Simulated assay, not measured.
Amino acid sequence: MGKEFTTEEGIRAMEICALNVLAQIVEKVGEENILGLNHIDAYYQSLDDWDDAPIVVDGASDLFVKVLGDAGHHSRAIFGVHKLPRNFSVGLTVSLTMI
């Protein structure tokens, strides 16, 4: 972020990441079995002086609420990292409650 990707592109990358997470959850446990999203850990790569991480992570947070409604509300932690696997720009881990 801040070099090869703009903040707006980072938001879109986080939305795509969240969609991938939702697709995996639906495939593995089924949407009907989700009681709620508890917490997300969001990871991003950036330049040292880039400081729009909360705005970028809103891309995932907003999408979860849009798709899951009240069940999509969650707490979150945001981590700037030196490197992500395969040089991804963003990544997510999600904790949820299921039936």
Rank of each mutant, 00 (worst) to 15 (best):
M1K: 00
M1V: 13
M1E: 07
M1L: 05
M1T: 04
G2N: 04
G2K: 04
K3T: 03
E4F: 13
T7L: 15
T7C: 14
T7Q: 09
E8R: 13
E8F: 06
E8Q: 12
G10E: 10
A13L: 08
A13D: 01
A13Y: 05
M14R: 04
M14P: 00
E15H: 02
I16F: 09
I16A: 04
C17F: 01
C17R: 00
C17D: 01
L19P: 01
V21F: 04
V21R: 09
V21Q: 00
L22H: 09
A23D: 11
Q24M: 07
I25S: 12
I25N: 06
I25H: 11
V26Q: 11
E27N: 15
E27Y: 11
K28I: 14
V29W: 03
V29T: 12
G30C: 10
G30K: 11
G30F: 06
E32D: 15
E32T: 05
N33D: 13
N33F: 06
N33K: 15
I34C: 07
I34K: 05
L35M: 05
L35Y: 11
L37E: 03
L37Q: 02
N38G: 11
H39A: 10
H39D: 08
H39F: 14
D41N: 09
D41K: 12
Y43D: 01
Y43L: 15
Y43M: 07
Y44C: 15
Y44R: 10
Q45H: 09
Q45I: 12
L47P: 01
D48N: 08
D48Q: 11
D49S: 09
D51Q: 14
D51F: 14
D51A: 14
D52N: 10
I55F: 01
V56Y: 10
V57C: 14
V57A: 15
G59K: 11
G59Q: 12
S61I: 14
S61H: 15
F64I: 08
K66T: 10
V67Y: 14
V67I: 13
G69L: 12
A71S: 06
A71R: 13
G72M: 04
G72A: 03
G72E: 03
G72K: 06
G72V: 02
S75N: 15
S75F: 00
S75W: 04
R76S: 15
A77Q: 05
I78Y: 04
I78V: 07
G80Y: 01
V81Y: 01
V81N: 01
H82A: 12
H82F: 02
K83F: 05
L84W: 06
P85A: 05
R86C: 06
R86S: 14
R86V: 05
R86P: 00
S89L: 13
S89V: 09
S89A: 11
V90N: 00
G91Y: 04
L92M: 02
T93D: 06
T93M: 02
V94W: 04
S95D: 07
T97M: 03
